[in-house]
Amino acid sequence: MAKRGAYAKGVVKREEILEAALEIVGRRGYRNASVREIADAVGLSPAGLLHYFGTKEELFVEILRARDAHDTERFDDLEFTESFLEVVRHNADVPGLVELYTRLAAEAADPEHPARGFFLDRTSAVHAVAREALLADQREGRIRADLDIEWIIRAGHALADGLQNAWILDPTIDMAADIDRFFVLLRA
Rank of each mutant, 00 (worst) to 15 (best):
H70G: 05
H70W: 12
T72S: 10
T72P: 01
E73G: 08
F75R: 03
D76K: 11
D76H: 13
D77V: 11
D77R: 11
L78N: 06
E79H: 05
T81K: 15
E82C: 13
F84V: 03
V87N: 01
V88Y: 08
V88R: 06
V88G: 09
V88C: 14
H90D: 15
H90G: 10
H90Q: 12
A92L: 07
A92F: 10
V94M: 07
G96H: 05
G96S: 12
L97S: 01
L97N: 01
L97W: 02
V98Y: 06
V98L: 14
E99A: 07
Y101I: 13
T102A: 09
R103K: 15
R103C: 07
A105F: 08
A105W: 06
A106M: 05
A108K: 04
A109G: 02
P111K: 07
P111V: 09
E112F: 12
E112H: 11
H113S: 14
P114A: 10
P114Q: 12
A115L: 07
A115E: 01
R116W: 06
F118T: 00
F118A: 05
F118C: 09
F119Q: 03
F119C: 09
D121N: 09
D121E: 09
R122W: 05
R122L: 06
T123R: 09
A125N: 02
A125Q: 05
H127F: 08
A128K: 08
V129N: 01
V129C: 06
A130Q: 07
R131Y: 02
R131I: 04
E132I: 11
L134K: 08
L135W: 06
E140N: 07
I143L: 02
R144A: 08
R144H: 07
R144P: 03
A145H: 11
D148E: 11
D148A: 10
D148F: 04
D148M: 01
W151M: 10
I152S: 00
I152M: 06
I152K: 00
R154V: 10
R154I: 08
A155I: 03
G156A: 09
A158D: 14
L159W: 04
L159F: 05
A160M: 10
A160H: 13
D161I: 02
D161F: 00
L163P: 00
A166L: 06
A166P: 01
W167M: 02
L169M: 12
L169A: 15
D170L: 04
P171S: 14
P171D: 14
T172N: 15
T172F: 12
I173L: 00
I173W: 00
D174K: 02
D174P: 03
D174G: 03
A176Q: 01
A177C: 02
D178N: 15
I179M: 12
